[in-house]
Simulated assay, not measured.
Amino acid sequence: MISKWILLIALIFLVFWLVKRFQRAAKQPPRSEQKVIEDMVRCAYCDVHLPKSESVAGHGQYFCSEAHRALHARAASKEK
């Protein structure tokens, strides 16, 4: 008989604890990760825009890949 009362009290305690936990979680504002705003640059060869950190710099310009940097350099040398 006493074990039934202990089990009932434990169950009621568990339900109140869960309800309180969910209420506390609902009150907290959602975590907003700070987004880093990064400069965008344009590839001098194909005009694709990409983040500056992902670009390849060369001759004062930005490129989307090492291949486009080389192609641009070759085209510039042929023009001269």
Rank of each mutant, 00 (worst) to 15 (best):
A10K: 03
W5P: 05
R24F: 07
A26R: 08
P30H: 08
F13C: 10
E54Y: 06
I9K: 05
L18T: 10
Q61F: 01
W5M: 12
F63V: 06
A26F: 03
I9T: 08
S65Y: 04
K35A: 10
L50W: 05
A26Y: 04
D39E: 14
F63N: 01
D47C: 07
K27L: 07
A57D: 12
S3L: 12
F16T: 09
H59E: 13
L11C: 13
Y62S: 09
R42V: 15
F16Y: 09
A75D: 15
M1S: 13
Q23N: 11
I2V: 11
A70F: 02
S55T: 06
A57P: 10
R74D: 15
S55D: 05
E79P: 01
K80R: 14
F63G: 05
D47E: 15
P51H: 05
F13R: 03
A73F: 07
M1E: 11
I37N: 00
K78L: 15
Y45M: 08
V56E: 02
K35I: 12
R24G: 09
K35S: 05
A57M: 14
R69M: 09
F22S: 04
E79R: 13
R24W: 07
Q61H: 04
H72T: 02
Y62I: 03
F22H: 07
K4Q: 15
H68M: 06
Q28K: 14
A73R: 12
I6Y: 06
H59G: 10
S32L: 11
V19L: 11
Q23F: 08
P29T: 04
S65C: 10
V19T: 14
D39P: 09
A25G: 08
I12M: 12
F16A: 14
W17Y: 13
R69A: 04
I37G: 01
K78R: 15
A57H: 14
R24Q: 15
A26S: 09
E54T: 10
K35P: 02
P51K: 02
Y62L: 06
F22G: 04
R42F: 09
E54C: 04
K20N: 15
F16R: 07
S3K: 05
K20P: 04
A75C: 10
H68D: 15
H68I: 02
L50D: 03
Q61W: 01
Q23M: 10
W17K: 12
S55E: 07
H59N: 14
F13A: 13
V15I: 13
G58Y: 03
S77K: 14
S3N: 11
I2K: 07
D39K: 12
P29E: 10
Y62P: 01
I12K: 02
S53W: 03
V48Q: 11
A70C: 06
F13V: 07
K80Y: 01
V19D: 11
E33L: 10
A73W: 07
S77R: 13
A10Q: 00
R69S: 07
A67D: 15
I9G: 02
A10Y: 00
V56I: 13
R69E: 05
P51C: 04
L11S: 14
K27C: 03
H49I: 05
V56A: 08
D47T: 13
V48C: 11
L50P: 03
R24K: 13
V15S: 01
R21I: 04
Q28R: 15
G58V: 02
S3H: 02
L50F: 07
